[in-house]
Design a protein around this nucleic acid. Structure first.
Lengths: 201, 201
DNA sequence: TCGCCTGCTTTACAGTGTGTCAATCACAAC
DNA sequence: GTTGTGATTGACACACTGTAAAGCAGGCGA
């Protein structure tokens, strides 16, 4: 999935410590200089550059690390194990609600850093494409079950589902407008069900 | 609205040239160093700092400038002159669709630059609060006309309306997934009407 | 015509962050 | 004990921000 060389250098434990330090710092302080990360990881700044190509490589590796640490695979399996597409949709929103608090700060940094750094931008784009595909699968299933509301193409509905649940939207609602995790799940699910599901009751 | 000191210095024409140069460069290249802006405006770098407190002040002034240049006031008047709330909703989406291409690059820079720079973050927040209020007014009118779908509070619906139509979402749909301006208006309006409007036909 | 004020320029500087390089150190395993 | 791996140290070039000080050009009033 990632087109970036997975660097294999040095002690994996050190690599892990750096990733964890980055996660913590970015989570609480947003964008953070590499030097800060190193200090917080109890490691020299150069060590970071031995393990990761550059800032972007570090952040990208962090995203992958977070997926594993948070169990993205299992969560997705749970979404797709839903008995109905409508339930899958609700589960997907719930997954976003639980993952975003941990992921959001990193996502924000990556969104902002994108346009210049080409390999980073590409990797982030790949990730978004995957994310969009997940949502498309759910919409497709909705269509297969004959519950996709009239007027939608699968792709249009998928794009909207994907976009509306992006971290940026979650951030705005929870950080700026005081929504709780439960608010997010309830209201966002309502929005999507009413909009996309036929005969939603 | 803006809590930032409106600097009054030097030739307004020079100020204007700087703003226009910034707009152009940010639009085509994203985040840009102050030196580049100055060069493109045919002015020394220091002149920029004479006219604007710092980078953030420049971007903030640019946002205000864009509002005037694009005629935000008139567009909003047109939205609120709609015969029905449902029509106002559609017009609001259309306004976003026409404004975002010009505004988006600047918005992206400001979103990314926010957390550190306190006065900038506050000013941006004020702007978002105003934006949200516009959407809330529309939702309120929908409720007054008895067309707000069941299950919604005015505030929840307003927050979603505001959030879903944020530049970040527009950017994702048009830049990443190839939506045209018309696609955006049609599909986003469909999403919001189906979700928020009772008896939408 | 002189002197002054305003707007802008030029040059320089301190500070901060990135990414690279080369020399060195600590500590295994052989 | 030698070798090799992983990490450290200190230095560097580069880019960008924001500040400072000296100077220049033109308009305008006395």
């Amino acid at each position: 999935m990632s087109s970036v060389d997975d660097q294999t250098y040095g002690d994996p434990a050190t690599r892990e410590r750096i990733l964890r330090a980055t996660w913590e710092l970015v989570a609480e302080r947003g964008d953070v200089p590499v030097g800060e990360v190193a200090r917080h990881a109890g490691v020299s700044r150069q060590t970071v550059y031995l393990h990761f190509r550059d800032r972007g490589g570090l952040l990208l590796a962090l995203v992958v690390h977070m997926d594993e640490a948070l169990g993205l695979g299992e969560s997705l399996a749970h979404v797709f194990a839903a008995p109905t597409a409508e339930e899958a949709l609700a589960r997907a929103v719930a997954v976003h609600s639980t993952f975003n608090p941990g992921i959001d700060a990193v996502a924000q940094v990556l969104e902002g850093a994108s346009p210049a750094d080409e390999p980073l931008a590409t990797a982030w784009r790949d990730r978004m494409a995957f994310r969009r595909q997940v949502h498309r699968d759910i919409v497709q299933r909705l269509a297969d079950e004959g519950r996709l509301a009239e007027g939608w193409t699968v792709d249009a509905a998928a794009d909207l589902f994907h976009t509306v649940t992006l971290p940026a939207s979650w951030r705005e609602l929870t950080r700026e407008w005081g929504w709780s995790a439960d608010d997010y799940v309830e209201e966002m699910t309502r929005l999507l069900r009413r909009a996309l599901v036929a005969d939603a009751d």
